[in-house]
């Protein structure tokens, strides 16, 4: 029970923490902090977390109703929708980030960028929060197994939040050029991960046909191992992805890597940017 709770909570918290750390690092590097806007005081983070928790609470309280909809594949369809909306706003964020000479003056796009980040963070909390709330509900109904699940949840959350904090400091501790490249790469991987998960959920709902497995790396890195879990949260690792999932992952990755911010990240920071 303890270990199961650790794995579930760690996976959920890690995904949300990764997205939040990534955006906070972006805000820092794009000098948005110095702008006299909502971004400066990070109100958008607080608001997205609050709205995310409220939506997660509503979602977890309507689990059975949602599950029964769409011929009993309501959960899959809802989750696929959440993933695809997140994917859309991640791509929009990457394309809204200004090209080269405008990188230090993003004031005219602040509202749109803030909205993109806020929506993605809110949806991440909705997704992961609702699953954690299910677990908490489980603890309250478990009786004797409650304390181990509680301890497991706390340990999983502790590890996830710590990795998120350390990732943020690692991203902001690098040189500007390297950190921007890493942020863009992580943004691209997160987008690819979301796209692949959307396909998987639609496969499970039978809304998309199953395609053959592209490869099997279960022998090299098991999905259930701690490293496998970490790889899943960070880069969306799956040991046996289908061809369609690989296609969606690659598409998400490429669209973000083709964005202006990516071209900026790979050009010389001071050479072309200023």
């Amino acid at each position: 029970m303890f270990l199961n709770a650790v794995v579930i909570v760690l996976q959920e918290i890690l995904e949300a923490a990764l997205i939040l750390s990534l955006f906070l690092a972006f805000v820092r590097y794009l000098n948005l902090e110095n702008n006299d806007s909502v971004l400066r005081r990070r109100i958008w983070v607080t608001l997205s977390i609050i709205f995310g928790i409220l939506l997660a609470w509503t979602y977890s309280h309507n689990f059975s109703r949602i599950s029964d909809s769409f011929d009993y594949v309501g959960l899959e369809i809802t989750n696929a929708s959440i993933h695809s909306i997140s994917c859309f706003f991640l791509v929009l964020f990457a394309w809204l980030l200004p090209p080269q000479q405008l990188i230090f003056d993003v004031s005219h796009r602040l509202l749109a960028l803030t909205l993109c980040m806020g929506i993605v963070v809110m949806l991440a909390i909705l997704r992961e929060g609702s699953e954690i709330m299910q677990l908490v509900g489980g603890i309250l109904n478990q009786g004797q197994a409650g304390p181990p699940i509680f301890y497991g949840g706390v340990v999983g959350a502790g590890i996830g939040v710590s990795i998120g904090v350390l990732l943020y400091y690692a991203l902001t501790g690098l040189s500007k050029e390297r950190s921007l490249r890493t942020c863009v790469l992580l943004l691209a991987l997160t987008t690819g991960n979301m796209a692949a998960q959307t396909i998987l959920l639609l496969n499970q709902a039978d809304w998309l046909p199953f395609t053959p497995t592209a490869w099997d790396t279960g022998g090299l890195l098991s999905e259930s191992s701690v490293l496998g879990q970490l790889a899943y949260a960070l880069i969306g690792y799956e040991a046996t992805p289908s061809i369609m999932q690989v296609g969606a992952y690659t598409l998400g990755l490429v669209i973000v890597l083709l964005s202006p911010i990516s071209r900026l990240a790979w050009s010389t920071w001071h050479g072309k940017a200023s």
């Binding site: 303890f2 270990l3 650790v6 340990v155 502790g158 590890i159 939040v161 710590s162 990795i163 904090v165 350390l166 400091y169 701690v226």
Partner: peptide
């Protein structure tokens, strides 16, 4: 403070999971 507490939490909790196993 946050980086030290995060590192302590991470190592302690991972050690706790290993210890548990």
């Amino acid at each position: 403070a946050t980086s030290i507490v995060s590192l302590l939490t991470l190592f302690n909790f991972v050690a706790a999971v290993q210890g548990y196993q």
